[in-house]
Structure formats: structure tokens, C-alpha cells
Design a protein around this nucleic acid. Structure first.
Lengths: 231, 231
DNA sequence: GAGATGCTTCGGCCGCGAACGAAGCGATCG
DNA sequence: CGATCGCTTCGTTCGCGGCCGAAGCATCTC
């Protein structure tokens, strides 16, 4: 059958541990080199090359050559969405899971990027705050920024108007958080919020990880603007 | 890493052709017996048993024993969503695809069920009609039933009020159609619409397939109520 | 009861594909 | 201009996992 075979074909590409780790590492939207991906995949350069070739051939990844490096990134938001769907199931739909062990995991649980927006306790807390204050309305699948929310974001210096008419990309949508098992903010609004936090140095990336650290300044600002305290 | 391994684990389960075909067959929400699934998977009963055991262990499928039969169904809407995500990518995100060949494919392209709602040319045409008439508003991710739409559906005998307050399940959302590459209606509204069409015998299931046939009565009713003509 | 039917368990076979190292090629650096 | 680095290609090895058929255990039918 036409349908099933495509399904299996794509899923089996994601179904290899090395490739899955590579894809997961690219979930934050960055582009990584073949060597970096070999490392996160836990395989040799030659093996990684074969994997990356397959992922590119299937259009899961796009590649851009720059000098002697080859930078890979997820080929489209559709890929990110697909992976998100699988990870969400893996985290909350599958067999019961356990809480984090290592300190690295702990950081991931606290705050991390998810493609281009924020997830973890911080992401969920932000979404909660936005909802509680009537800035956004969220259902399971849809989200909407209220006029009140638009104004409030404007007050803290987040230019929402310029984004507003981006009808093509999704403006505001919930994204199920695999660690908190509750929705956080994705879409244009979620991305803008994340950018804002980075710009103001409320958060900063943690090396070699999707996790982010909340700076002292961020602690203060988040409490002041959103009533968030993640101690 | 914790994340990647779960991702690979789940994806590899879907990544086997036999299992993928079984899962695809269950996408319409029905429950099938082990023997039926062995058939759609194209494998022997013993092999199917092993596959189904794995899918159940990973909580992709739930099983209910009835007499000497074991009925399998997708364990949760989360699984359906995950598969939907992969199929969507496989259909439109991957390498360029081709149009149908066999008559069976043709029927699938014309009209079929997608979990619990309608897809194919019919599904897309219904969504288009609903939008064109101002019954619903659709963005890429969200959907909303307008008061006008609510009234109109009421006129043709579709009790929408009773569904309205089902806040838990998603009320109305778009679902990307892999054959038409355009959204059709999913969510509670999409499901209610599909049920309505079945109840009135506007459409009827085609044996051993997710495809549905549009009855002569359906042709007339669809044209009258929605201005749809799929000749 | 005997005989189907539905499904699982067991044992053994086989092939795909992931793995590595060595070698080659192109780009960059000193 | 070598030397180094980033990546790919090639040839080979090897183990996991899918496959089947035979046998076994239920359950329903007559």
C-alpha cells in the first residue's frame, strides 16, 4: 500500500538511535556541522555521513555548504512538528516515565528551547501567566492573543504589531510540554517571547545543550513582569 | 541521552512496514482483530502476534479481549496525532510524490475517513464550503465555528449546541490532508459532520478500506446544502 | 465430547543495515 | 608549499530483528 510504506519509510529514518539523536539536537532550529552531529549521534564520522546522506535524501534535513563545513538543519517546520508529535507521545503517551537523574537533565526540566520557543517549567509558567492574566486564550489546539495581551506585551517592549499580520506562519499556538505534560506557548508569539528573553539576557544558553539558564536579572524581570518564581 | 532514545524507540516501532500498515489501518478509529491486522500487515499470524505485542507493550495500541478474539485499537488520540504528523510529512514534506494509480487509490483520493472525520477531495471541499460560507474560520493551526455556522448546521439537523461545551476535546481544528495538500475539518465539528453524513447515508464505507463512497442521495444533499459537486 | 477457529510461543533461518577503519578529495591554515 | 582539518567513499564485518511453520493453549460451535 502506498500510504503505509511512506509512513514506515519516514518513521524508520527517525527510528535509528544515532539519527534520532541528531534530529533531536537540531530541534532548536540551529544548524550543526556533520562532525558535531556525529558526536551527538555517538558514531564515527563515516557512519554519520551515511546517516546524514539518508536524512537529506528524504528531505528531513537541508544542508548548506560553507567552506569546508557542511551545515545541516531541519528541512522545514513540518519536520519539527513531526518530531514534536513523536516526542510528545514518547514522553506522555507511552509507558510511565520517571523524573530526571543527572544535573544536566534537571536543567532541561527547568528551562530549555523547543525549536524556537521556550519549554520546561519556565515555558509552562510563562504560558500559565499569560493565560491567568488574560493575555492569551488557549484550548488544546488553538491559541489567541487578546487585545489586552497585545497591549501588555507592548508595554514591556515587545513589538507585537509587526508580527500580527504574519498569517502564514501560525501566530499563537499551544505546544505540549513533554516534561511538564502541560502546554507552553509556541507559534510566532512563543518565538517572539523567547527572543525577547534572550535579548534582555533574562536567559542564556547552556553550552552543548538545549537547556537555558535563567540569569539573576531574568529572575527579577520574570517575577516583576509575569509573577514567575522558579526557585 | 534520555530524549533521543525514546524518540528512536517509538519511531522504530512505527518504522517497520508491517507495523506501519497495521497502524495506518487503525487510523480510522475502529478496532480490528489480530488476524485482520496480520492481513493488512502482510505477514503471518505468528509474526503479527509479535508485532502487536510490541505495539501494545509500548502503549501505542490498547487491546480488549472478546471471546476468542483480541481487538486492537490505537491507544489514544495522541497516537493518532503522532501518525498524522508523520504521514503529513511523508506526503508533502518529503520527496515529490505522484498521483494515484489503481482504482482503489482513486477512491481513497476522492473520499475517506481520517480517524473520525472526513478527508480526501470530499473532506477538503466540505472545509472549503464551510469557510466560503462563513461557517468556520480557519488558520494553519486553529479553527473556530462562527455563530452563523452554528445556526446553519442546526438548520440541516446537526445538533451543535450539545457539542459546544466540549472544551476538553478540541472543538474545531484543521487537519492537513495528505492527498489534497490542503486542510480539512477535524476536531469535534469534523467528527460530527462525518457522523451526520453517515447517518443520512450520504456516504457509506467501502469494504476493507478507509475510503467511502458518496451515495446518489449524498450527491444531491451535498450539492444542496454545501454546493459541492465532485463529479 | 470432537472439531474448528483465534491467537501465542518456540526454534531456527536469513538478510538488511549500522558499524568501523583506511584511504581519498577538497578547503583552509601557517 | 606542505600540513591539517572536514567530510565522503569503499570494503568488510557483524548482530539485531523480522520471518515462517509447527506445536500448544484457549474459546466457541455443533
Amino acid at each position: 500500500m502506498t500510504v503505509g510504506s511512506n509512513l514506515a519509510e519516514v518513521a524508520s529514518l527517525v527510528g535509528d538511535p544515532a539519527r534520532a539523536n541528531m534530529l533531536a539536537a537540531l530541534m532548536d532550529g540551529r544548524a550543526l556541522t556533520a562532525t558535531e552531529l556525529a558526536y551527538v549521534g555517538g558514531v564515527s564520522a563515516s557512519t554519520a555521513s551515511a546517516h546524514l546522506g539518508k536524512l537529506e535524501a528524504a528531505h528531513l534535513l537541508s544542508v548548506v555548504k560553507q567552506g569546508r563545513h557542511r551545515y545541516f538543519r531541519l528541512a522545514s517546520p513540518l519536520v519539527s512538528r513531526m518530531l514534536e508529535g513523536i516526542m510528545t507521545f514518547a514522553a506522555i503517551g507511552g509507558p510511565p516515565r520517571y523524573r530526571p537523574h543527572g544535573p544536566k537533565d534537571a536543567a532541561m526540566w527547568l528551562a530549555r528551547t523547543c525549536y524556537d520557543h521556550l519549554a520546561g517549567r519556565l515555558g509552562v509558567a510563562l504560558a500559565d501567566a499569560m493565560v491567568a492574566r488574560g493575555y492569551v486564550v488557549l484550548t488544546d489546539d488553538a491559541g489567541e492573543l487578546t487585545p489586552r495581551g497585545e497591549a501588555a506585551l507592548g508595554d514591556i517592549g515587545l513589538a507585537v504589531d509587526s508580527l500580527q499580520h504574519a498569517h502564514k506562519r501560525v501566530f499563537c499556538r499551544p505546544c505540549l510540554d513533554w516534561s511538564e505534560r502541560r502546554p507552553h506557548l509556541a507559534g510566532t508569539v512563543g518565538a517572539a517571547l523567547a527572543h525577547h528573553c534572550f535579548d534582555r539576557h533574562w536567559i542564556e544558553p547552556i553550552r552543548d545543550s538545549r537547556a537555558v539558564r535563567i540569569t539573576p536579572a531574568g529572575q527579577i524581570a520574570l517575577r516583576k513582569d509575569f509573577g514567575i518564581d522558579l526557585s
